[in-house]
Design a protein around this nucleic acid. Structure first.
Lengths: 332, 332
DNA sequence: TTGAAAGCGATACCAT
DNA sequence: ATGGTATCGCTTTCAA
């Protein structure tokens, strides 16, 4: 009986039969090996084309253990910061001929869990952002290298790229102080319960300059969030003449709110963001920011994966650091 | 002799031996099949953990032909429009449990060729943007479904999602005319030799309203490009009170140039972009735009892939269309 | 409950 | 130049 519907996969065997040769001859023809007669080769190629033959990547992968595929886990690809990191990782991976499977976890712990569950069996290494506890990560990624980005600590099990911003933030505050600002506020991120590390950097920098205790408002991570927070901050503390924000998105909201309030940037109000997004150049005035080198971030992560994968000496915690640097544009 | 360096892969066989059972028992334990003694199962699990065993995705894929992986080809992930499309495709694919390998071709024909060369052997279907001729695409993707985005025509070999913007652009022009504008310019894309299709839509809409022959300036695809083009346009035609742009990026440049020239938007100059990027809300005033539903675009592409993959009736050319719609925000 | 054997679809090594 | 055979690592019948 002939199978009516579900057309079985065309295998190398079918091609061999159609061309009247053996399987290995087909393999030779398709992989451009030498040691094959021109005529036979053509015959095989024709048969393959005619049958619509495609080698199984699984079968092929099984025997020649080349191709590496890494999994890149991103909380939200539409967040421009993560877009930049992803693009950087993609570029670094491409340079090595690797394939990258991208997973967007939508900022959701459940999606992250779902990703974790499938990713381990699909890739040779994992890079990215995770919020779940380490023992859980370990359970699902056992046996493959994992490089975390932006986590605070490096453990023997997980490499992690640390972001070091104290210096950069200090430079930003110095820049503001030099411009005459004395009362500097911050728009922190409202997401988590505790204040952010960036806020600690800010507090330290403000203290180092002997300025008054800082004033902080918490902002939702969006343009609107930033706008609302600036309004609130200025309502309470009209004497504030400069703000540092948790990130560039919030800073853009601040920019907008400032304009609506009739405060000119940077003259009446200086704004310094964090991240140094390319996006900062589309707003007007262009955003001054404590910038992270996202390309380096991506490259570093991929480099570490490569070392872990080949058994080369991995980079130490001290080397897995990205220093933030003040990027002066127009808003401060 | 014991192999010193290259630690051989840990296979199911090793686990079986360590646990003192057969390979299929290991398989049962790991895949949570029934028909296995609790004690044995635990023993196997322990052995697996101890040895750091991970099943080979190739071997597994070979026997249970499930997991589908699609390749998503994007010219430039940092271009916000493509970011949105990519995020949409990722989301639609995730909903089906598919894995997505992302390739960023850096707007380069060579990179595109490189991608084409490897992608065919790594994925079950391809979705994305290509600039190379169809016969070349065909040569490298023979046998797998390919869904093109934004190409003008659908062929039996390649499905293609078409963007239909005539209506949306017409609505935009109508909107401008209703607001009193009579002299409307366009900032077209300077990339290719010929004028863009969007310009044709613009010309048709302007003609439909019986306005004077349109004035067009060509702009490089960047904020600066848009700014420069607007300046040039206004220098030549100071009577222009509204501009329609090839895309939102160029429109943002126009916004900036307008402010620098002292033209208030939308009062002195109305600006309408194209694409409807979310990004359009970070600038001030928020950008009015002829919007493309990128989520629908991604979902449609993935839907078509699914049909092609399962042998279901594919969507016809008429169904593979995304209609652009006027999205009024603040700049016009 | 467990194990033996037969594939899955390709490539590599060794004959011929 | 071509074919036979073993092999990659796992899952799936089918017996026991």
């Amino acid at each position: 009986m002939v199978s009516s519907e579900a057309s079985r996969r065309v295998t190398i065997h079918d091609v061999a039969r159609t061309a009247g040769v053996s399987r290995q001859t087909v393999s030779r023809a398709l992989n451009d090996k030498g040691e094959i007669d021109g005529g036979t080769k053509q015959r095989v190629l024709d048969a393959a084309r005619e049958l619509g033959y495609r080698p199984s990547r699984f079968a092929r992968g099984l025997v020649r253990q080349d191709t590496t595929t890494i999994g890149l886990v991103i909380p939200d690809l539409l967040n421009p910061f993560f877009t930049e990191v992803a693009a950087a990782a993609l570029e670094a991976a491409r340079a090595r001929g690797w394939h990258v499977v991208v997973y967007d976890t939508s900022d959701s712990a459940e999606e992250e869990l779902g990703t974790l569950q499938v990713i381990g069996s699909q890739v040779d290494a994992v890079v990215g952002y995770f919020s779940r506890p380490e023992d859980e990560l370990d359970r699902f990624t056992r046996g493959i290298p994992v490089v975390l980005i932006g986590r605070e600590h490096h453990t023997p099990r997980f490499s992690s790229i640390r972001v070091e911003g104290a210096e950069g933030v200090k430079a930003a505050i110095t820049h503001l102080v030099n411009a005459g600002h004395r009362r500097i506020g911050m728009l922190d991120h409202a997401g988590r319960a505790e204040p952010s590390v960036r806020r600690d950097w800010f507090a330290a920098a403000v203290a180092a300059h002997g300025l008054e205790a800082e004033v902080v408002e918490r902002a939702a991570q969006s343009v609107d969030g930033g706008a609302g927070a600036l309004e609130a901050l200025l309502a309470e503390h009209p004497d504030v003449t400069a703000v540092f924000t948790f990130n560039d998105i919030i800073a853009m909201g601040a920019l907008r709110a400032a304009r609506r309030l009739g405060r000119r940037v940077p003259d009446d109000l200086a704004v310094v963001g964090f991240d140094g997004l390319q996006l900062g150049t589309v707003v007007d005035p262009a955003l001054t920011s404590v910038a992270l080198d996202t390309r380096r971030l991506g490259a570093l992560a991929i480099d570490q994966v490569a070392r872990l994968l080949t058994g080369a000496t991995p980079l130490s915690a001290d080397e897995l650091v990205v220093q933030a640097q003040l990027l002066v544009r127009e808003s401060a």
